[in-house]
């Protein structure tokens, strides 16, 4: 059973075809990269998978269940979490609260429990807080617990976004350009983090990235998208040599010689 299986996924924005006939079979434990020039439809694929858009056509199966058209919070509850290209943390809440709220869908108590402070509320809330604290610890964010996310250094904000995604206890983690805007030192750290969380959380990771250094050093398989279509799929070394990929990135042979 594949972890994620996408068949003939197509999405239109009005008359614009953003994703065309996208297919993917992702096995548990893989680390897959999705690359492509700007506007190739990479983020749209992520948005379709996490339920933010309803696909025009095609199926998305997660653990053999059709998730196309589910609302995002329900998709998250099934075990798909993501980070965003432009950091989207909750900026008036503390770092700690950011990690607690990411567990919202499995709080397991309701308004009545909150008001009456039932036993269920107390135990569940304690559990939520403990999970958040553990994540702070292992992601090296302990020091910032009561800080507002906006005050953190950029690299730390990216880390917090990953921590927040982990707080949902995902099986599949989507990282949308995790290295965007990072300096080389931060990138090295990120590569370490990605490798490390994959091992310790037994995660499947699917990432969009522009930094070839990140893609080449962490991904085991890379898929290349151009104008919504998959133009290559294979191990990173093969992708690097693929003439269609080079053409998509650098323009046609003639143009690059001119």
């Amino acid at each position: 059973m594949a972890l994620l299986e996408i068949r003939r996924l197509t999405h239109f924005f009005g008359g614009l075809r953003a994703v065309a006939d996208f297919n993917l079979r992702l096995e548990g434990g893989e680390l897959l990269g999705l690359i492509g020039p700007n506007g190739a439809g990479k983020t749209t694929v992520f948005n379709l998978v996490c339920g933010f858009y309803k696909p025009t056509e095609g199926d998305i199966f997660f653990l053999d269940k059709d998730i196309a058209g589910l609302r995002p919070h329900a998709v998250t509850a099934m075990g798909i979490a993501r980070t965003f290209q432009n950091i989207r943390l909750w900026n008036t809440l503390s770092v700690f609260d950011n990690l607690c709220i990411a567990q919202h869908f499995r709080l397991g108590y309701g308004l009545g429990d909150v008001v009456l402070r039932t036993g269920r509320f107390v135990t569940r809330e304690r559990h939520v807080r403990r999970t958040a604290e553990e994540l702070l610890e292992i992601m090296g964010l302990r020091h910032y617990a009561q800080e507002r996310p906006g005050n953190l250094p950029y690299g730390m904000q990216r880390r917090l976004e990953i921590a927040r995604a982990l707080a949902t206890q995902p099986k599949l983690l989507l990282l949308d350009e995790p290295a965007a805007g990072m300096n080389p030192g931060e990138i090295d750290q990120l590569v370490e983090t990605i490798r490390w969380i994959r091992e310790s959380f037994t995660l499947t990771i699917w990432l969009i990235e522009h930094h070839m250094r990140v893609v080449m050093s962490v991904c085991e398989r890379v898929q290349v998208l151009d104008f919504g279509q998959t133009i290559a799929d294979g191990p990173p070394e093969a992708i690097k040599q693929d003439p269609r990929v080079i053409q998509a990135y650098l323009g046609s042979e003639e143009l690059s010689h001119a």
Partner: peptide
């Protein structure tokens, strides 16, 4: 409560709230 703070998350970033598991 973490439950109620979900509405603050909606204020801060509704899209992120919905995608990160807040109904």
């Amino acid at each position: 409560s973490s439950y109620g703070k979900g509405i603050v998350a909606i204020r801060d970033d509704e899209i992120a709230a919905e995608i990160m598991g807040v109904d």
